[in-house]
Nucleic acid binder design. Structure first.
Length: 331
DNA sequence: TTCCGACAGTGGGGTCGCAAT
DNA sequence: ATTGCGACCCCACTATCGGAA
């Protein structure tokens, strides 16, 4: 058992604030970047594809809270139990709850579990969950926000027993680029890069960066939706790809456009309007205009979903060098 | 002067749970 | 039995504004 703050090296003593344990703290959020780097002043953690969770333990009582301050205790009773059994008390930890599909964390798998509310449904659920701890924000009367990240992680590792389902989130030093290559090869969601000496900010901060492994390919534009509210031009494009000479629907892409692009594309769509869809699949029916399959768009996304649609899609631009019939599903 | 953070507003896929059809 | 919708999860991105750099 370690005793705070006595075990923290002298130079960090002045960074500790004595404070009553809060019932809620806003989580630190990472910024997305497309600029992957290596840097000796940064550490790199595996990006876990699950549900963000803040763990509060106070006088033996455990509370799991979502990013939007919803209590998760009912959904994950086995995690609550695991924290109750820990000797350490009176702390706040930052975590991610995950489920696995093979060796990779799977949001798809976790979704079968995360919305369950009924006791029987949760007890009979086959989805096994784990909770990865990656930060310690408070312990035993002291706010740890102002300690450097690496000190907070050190304390975290010493304070708790890491036995399933409770797991520590390890990191690699310096070699972000190499680690990122490995991560994508292993089908991980990506990495989180963190400035090693940074404090815990209760907001989005550029001291935490997302390096996401992304997919990118062309799709045929087969329609678009009407704009809502103050939106210009159109809402989203509907896209498809060819399989066995037939156009298959692959979902919508509604972000990545400037106002100018929305208006320019919308004006190009006018000449291509048709009454019946040129694609097959489960198609949306409301507010949809169908188009002759003539235009090709480049789209980035994180992964294919179980129904062959794109997760986190965004528009990158038009491809004029590509024939529509050459647009196939690539990954 | 330029850059950056915070916010609102637009858009995506998916699940559960419940009400309406 | 099927469909639609809200409430939550996961988001990406643009536009705007005011203050920091």
């Amino acid at each position: 058992m370690i005793n705070l703050p006595a075990d923290i090296s002298e130079k960090f003593r002045d960074k500790l604030n004595k404070k009553k344990q809060p019932d809620w703290i806003s989580p630190m959020l990472a910024k997305l970047t497309h600029d992957v780097f290596s840097d000796a002043e940064w550490i790199f953690e595996r990006k876990l594809d699950g549900e963000r969770c803040l763990v509060f333990k106070k006088n033996g009582k455990v509370e799991l809270m979502s990013r939007n301050q919803k209590e998760l205790n009912n959904t994950y009773p086995e995690l609550v139990r695991a924290f109750e059994e820990q000797d350490t008390d009176n702390f706040i930890a930052d975590t991610e709850i995950v489920a696995f599909d093979g060796n990779v964390t799977s949001f798809r798998e976790l979704q079968k579990r995360m919305h369950l509310k009924k006791k029987e449904a949760i007890e009979s659920s086959k989805v096994k969950v784990f909770i990865y701890l990656f930060d310690l924000i408070y312990h035993d009367g002291y706010e740890l926000d102002k300690l450097p990240l690496t000190e907070r992680k050190k304390l975290l590792r010493e304070l708790l027993d890491f036995e399933d389902p409770i797991r520590f989130t390890p990191h690699r030093n310096e070699k972000g680029k190499e680690f990122y290559q490995e991560a994508c090869k292993k089908d991980w969601e990506g990495l989180i890069a963190k400035k090693a000496n940074s404090t815990y900010a209760h907001s989005r901060s550029s001291n935490w960066l997302k390096f996401k492994c992304e997919n990118q390919q062309e799709f045929v534009i087969v329609g678009y939706t009407k704009p809502q509210g103050t939106r210009k031009g159109f809402g989203a494009i509907l896209i498809g790809f060819y399989k066995d000479d037939k156009l298959k629907y692959a979902g919508k892409v509604g972000t990545g456009y400037t106002d100018e692009m929305l208006e320019d594309l919308h004006s190009r769509f006018q000449k291509l309007e048709i009454d019946e869809p040129a694609v097959s699949g489960r198609l949306p029916s409301k507010n949809v205009h169908w188009l002759k399959p003539k235009m090709v768009a480049e789209v980035a996304f994180t992964e294919w979903t179980s129904t062959n649609k794109l997760r986190h899609p965004r528009y990158l631009g038009l491809r004029r060098d590509k024939k529509v019939k050459d647009v196939l599903k690539e990954s």
